[in-house]
Simulated scan of single mutants.
Amino acid sequence: MNAASMSPLTLFAVFLAAGAATFLIRLSFIAVEGRVRLPAWFRTALQFVPAAMLSALIAPDLLMHDSQLFLSLQNSRLIAGIVAVIVAALTRSVGWTIVVGMAALIGMEMLN
C-alpha cells in the first residue's frame, strides 16, 4: 500500500501517530531531566548527535549518483560540499557557508 492508495483519513491518522511518537520520544528526555543522572560518557556522546545526524542526511547526496558511489571532479555536489566545509572551517559562519556552498554548486552546475 502506498500513500496514493490510502484514504485521507487513514493518512491523517498515520501523520498523527508519527507526530505523537516523535513528541513522546522528545518529551521523555525533558521529563527525566534532573531525575536521572546520565553517565558522563553518555552526556559527552550526546553532544555529537546533531553533527552525526546532519552528516548522515547530507553524505549520501554528496557521494552518490544513480545509486552508485560518484567520487569525481564532475560531481558538482561533492565539490560544492568540500568548498562549504572549507568555508565553514575558515569563517565559522553558517550564513557564509550556505551562500558560498550554494554559489559553488550553482556555478558548477552551470558549467556542466
Rank of each mutant, 00 (worst) to 15 (best):
L63I: 06
L71N: 01
H65C: 06
P39H: 05
V32Y: 11
D66F: 01
A56T: 06
R26E: 11
I79N: 05
H65Q: 10
S28D: 10
R37T: 14
L69E: 09
A59M: 08
P60L: 06
N75T: 04
F70M: 02
S72D: 05
A59L: 11
Q68Y: 06
T44F: 13
L63K: 01
F42G: 03
L69N: 07
M64L: 13
L71K: 02
P39L: 08
I30D: 08
S28H: 03
S67H: 10
R26W: 12
F42P: 05
V36Y: 14
L78D: 02
P60I: 00
V32E: 12
W41H: 13
V49D: 12
L62H: 02
P60G: 07
E33I: 09
R26L: 13
A45T: 12
D61L: 11
P50N: 04
V36K: 13
L78T: 03
F48C: 02
Q68I: 06
F23E: 03
L57H: 06
I58S: 04
L62E: 00
R43T: 15
L57M: 11
F48K: 06
Q68H: 09
I30C: 07
G34K: 02
F70D: 00
P50S: 05
L38S: 14
I58C: 08
S72I: 04
L78S: 04
T44H: 13
L38E: 15
L62V: 03
E33Y: 15
Q68P: 04
R26I: 09
R37E: 14
S72E: 04
F23G: 02
F42N: 01
N75F: 02
Q47I: 08
V32R: 11
S76L: 06
P60V: 01
P60C: 03
P60R: 08
L57V: 09
P60A: 02
Q68M: 09
S67F: 07
A40L: 14
S28V: 00
L69R: 05
A45C: 10
E33H: 15
L57Q: 07
P50T: 06
F42I: 14
A45H: 12
H65L: 10
A59V: 07
L27E: 11
R43G: 15
I30P: 02
I25P: 00
R37M: 04
A31M: 12
P60E: 09
I79H: 03
A31P: 12
L54P: 00
Q74I: 06
L73H: 04
L62K: 03
S55C: 13
A59T: 01
I79P: 03
L54H: 03
L71E: 01
W41E: 14
Q47F: 10
Q74F: 07
S72F: 04
P50L: 10
R26Q: 11
T44M: 13
V32K: 12
R77F: 00
L38Y: 15
E33R: 15
F23K: 02
F29H: 15
A80E: 02
F29D: 15
S76Y: 08
L46D: 07
D66N: 10
F23S: 04
